[in-house]
Design a protein around this nucleic acid. Structure first.
Lengths: 69, 69
DNA sequence: CCGGTAGTTGTCATGTAAGGCAACCGCAAT
DNA sequence: ATTGCGGTTGCCTTACATGACAACTACCGG
């Protein structure tokens, strides 16, 4: 698995969990205290997020980090 | 769980897996293509690593990312 | 047609991770 | 006492994530 594939897969997983909770990128981003633009880039695998950013998203989704992989 | 606790816990988990494989920070760092100094800081929770750095460490440890949480 | 909603993309400033080098601390073992 | 190893810390540069704001597309509602 390439690094790019890894990031894309992670973004897809985040999107999947977000859709399951029926909230918009904007709403999820607001709960994480950043912009919907950032969430868009994260879900599309364009940014190599830090582990704390992943932690914030995980918390906002009431999910366990394990659920992201 | 605070962000600091999250980072510290992640570092401890990395250390645990590294010890289990019986390799030094230096050797693990070399496999990840960075310095032992960086590995020391990661294991002690001093740096907020990116997900690709975690991915590199995971690969070097022949572990699944799930094993880190 | 026009408003709002969801998502994408460009650009910017600031902070900080990545990567590297060197010096240092404990602690073996000789 | 000194050589070596594992680990820690300080400092530096460069790259990039974060966070923000705006502009844009596309779709759907009235």
């Amino acid at each position: 698995m390439t690094e790019h594939e890894f990031l894309a897969g992670l973004g897809a997983r985040i999107k999947e969990l977000r859709i399951k909770k029926n909230i918009s990128q904007k709403d999820l981003a607001m709960e994480c205290n950043f912009e919907k633009a950032s969430m868009s880039r994260i879900e599309s695998g364009k940014t190599n997020i830090t582990i704390l950013t992943l932690y914030k998203i995980m918390s906002a989704l009431n999910a366990d980090v394990k659920d992201f992989f």
